[in-house]
């Protein structure tokens, strides 16, 4: 139990980091990582939606499986995520306008974010239990799925914030004209991915 939890944390946040190892959520990684602050808030928003989406999609998938309509999963999931993001945006705007100003603007951007649908699809995968160190598919449950979603979000945030810090510095350096913008960011991400590669050797 304890070992499994530790494995999930390490796997989700580091050794299969969503951005740098699994290539999920690259769009916000490239688009919203110019400043450390915005990168952090984007990370928080993504983590929140990931956990909430998994909380709904995982039980839903089990229900769909019982009804033999699991082939509709993509359509169901994308709708739930879109509705969830809309709802969350409204709730945050109502409860705390100041939080909405700092975080709310990132919410519409993550409706069609690969990372959210990615985590929902990953945790229902046939071989997912093996990747987090479980012995049998039957011991997989909602708790593990939620923990995975939470730490996948933390790993996402970590990569975003690190990238934000690096990009703040790169902006001040002279860069060849054709390497400006996306190319230099990609090459930087490549070096960060190399650092994260170490965790896969654990």
């Amino acid at each position: 139990m304890g070992a499994t939890i530790l494995t999930i944390i390490i796997t989700a946040a580091f050794s299969s980091n969503f951005i740098l190892v699994q290539f999920l959520g690259i769009c916000p990684f490239l688009g919203v990582s110019k400043r450390t602050g915005s990168a952090f808030y984007m990370g928080v928003a993504v983590t929140l939606v990931m956990v909430l989406a998994t909380l709904i999609t995982y039980p839903l998938y089990l229900g769909m499986k019982a009804l033999n309509i699991e082939f509709l999963e993509i359509i169901f999931f994308i709708f739930i995520i879109a509705a969830l993001v809309q709802m969350l945006e409204k709730i945050i705007a109502k409860i705390s306008p100041s939080l909405y100003k700092t975080m709310g603007i990132y919410l519409p951007l993550i409706t069609t974010n690969c990372a959210i649908l990615g985590v929902a699809e990953l945790v229902i995968g046939d071989n997912f239990y093996a990747s987090i160190g479980l012995q049998a598919a039957s011991s997989m449950n909602l708790g593990y799925a939620l923990l995975y979603a939470l730490f996948a979000g933390v790993g996402f945030m970590l990569a975003m914030v690190l990238m934000g810090g690096v990009r703040e510095r790169i902006e001040k350096l002279p860069v060849a004209k054709c390497m400006k913008g996306f190319p230099i960011t990609m090459v930087t991400a490549s070096f960060m991915a190399m650092a994260f590669y170490v965790f896969t050797l654990l």
């Binding site: 290539f23 054709c178 990609m186 090459v187 490549s190």
Partner: peptide
């Protein structure tokens, strides 16, 4: 590896 993916993509865009 994943690092190579980022590297090749970046260089391809630049080219």
């Amino acid at each position: 590896s994943s690092a190579g993916a980022f590297f090749v993509y970046g260089i391809c865009i630049a080219l």
